[in-house]
């Protein structure tokens, strides 16, 4: 932190990035606020209509349901991966991390498409079920499809904070517990898991934030009844051409995400103090 820059140098280094952000992020966000308040005269009509609209209330409820359930599923699925990675040597960890990074960097469209093919009526999974004499289960264009798609997208986002938490835990605690005769299961439930709660919580909140705003997965893998708020924004923008409503929904979504991120930052700070 010793570097001293003059005002002029700071401007040269930082002005371009600030200009880009103001142009392509801040101005558009202000535009939404402005539109949601009515263009000609300031009014809260769009918000009042919104909270009277069954469509919006249903989409909100669906969004909360899907976000919470996908966060739970993703966390449970991510935990074994993070635990496994944390116990690997420094030589092997980067190699196994590729298995998490590759899906992280795979286009969500690729994953959605392959879920449609694999989970579809005559897809791999249903064919296997028939082979074993079981009935077919509809797995796409419904809630199952959305949850599968969401969790496959979110797992890496839980693995990363959880892994850094697990790596920061003092292995001597576990060793000590083992010396004192604690069984592995007990060591996990009473030492590893409680200590990992801040990382876990960070992952859960991250999932909730991402899921609340998700657009592609419910549109491609969900059914009509799985429309989430992001899809409603799209509907109001492109089909209903009702920009005031679309903007009001976007402002509400923005506020909800910001609140969750604020909670997350508090969690991070508090966990830093422990």
């Amino acid at each position: 932190m010793a570097l001293q820059l003059s005002r002029r140098e700071l401007t040269v280094y930082l002005l371009p990035v600030a200009a880009l952000m103001v142009f392509a992020l801040i101005a558009p966000l202000l535009m939404i606020f402005w539109r949601s308040l009515g263009e000609t005269s300031v009014s809260l009509d769009a918000y009042i209509d919104l909270f009277k609209s069954r469509l919006f209330l249903r989409a909100s409820l669906t969004s909360f349901e899907i976000s919470i359930s996908s966060a739970i599923v993703s966390t449970i699925f991510a935990y074994p991966i993070a635990l496994h990675l944390s116990r690997l040597s420094d030589k092997w960890r980067p190699i196994f991390l590729i298995f998490v990074l590759l899906p992280f960097w795979t286009s969500i469209l690729v994953k959605s498409y392959s879920f449609i093919v694999v989970l579809g009526d005559s897809g791999l999974v249903n064919n296997a079920l028939v082979e074993f004499g079981l009935p077919k289960v509809p797995m796409i264009f419904n809630r199952i499809g959305v949850l599968v798609g969401m969790s496959s997208f979110q797992i890496p986002f839980v693995v990363f904070p959880l892994l850094s938490n697990l790596l920061a835990q003092d292995p001597n605690l576990r060793r000590m517990a083992a010396v004192m005769g604690a069984a592995d299961v007990r060591i996990f439930w009473q030492i590893t898991l409680p200590l990992s709660l801040p990382g876990l919580l960070a992952g859960v909140v991250m999932c909730l934030v991402m899921a609340m705003g998700s657009f592609v997965t419910p549109a491609l893998l969900g059914g009509r009844q799985d429309m989430m708020v992001a899809n409603l924004i799209d509907f109001y923008t492109r089909e209903a051409l009702d920009w005031a409503s679309a903007s009001a929904i976007a402002v509400v979504l923005f506020a909800v995400s910001a609140t969750m991120l604020w909670v997350l930052s508090r969690v991070r700070r508090d966990s830093g103090l422990i």
Partner: peptide, 24 residues
């Protein structure tokens, strides 16, 4: 403030950014 500004695109749901860009 600058950090918040620069990390903003990660914080705001992408569909909100998209609608904003569309209107703007």
């Amino acid at each position: 403030i600058l950090v918040m500004l620069v990390l903003g695109p990660m914080m705001v749901p992408v569909v909100v950014i998209s609608l904003g860009l569309y209107l703007y």
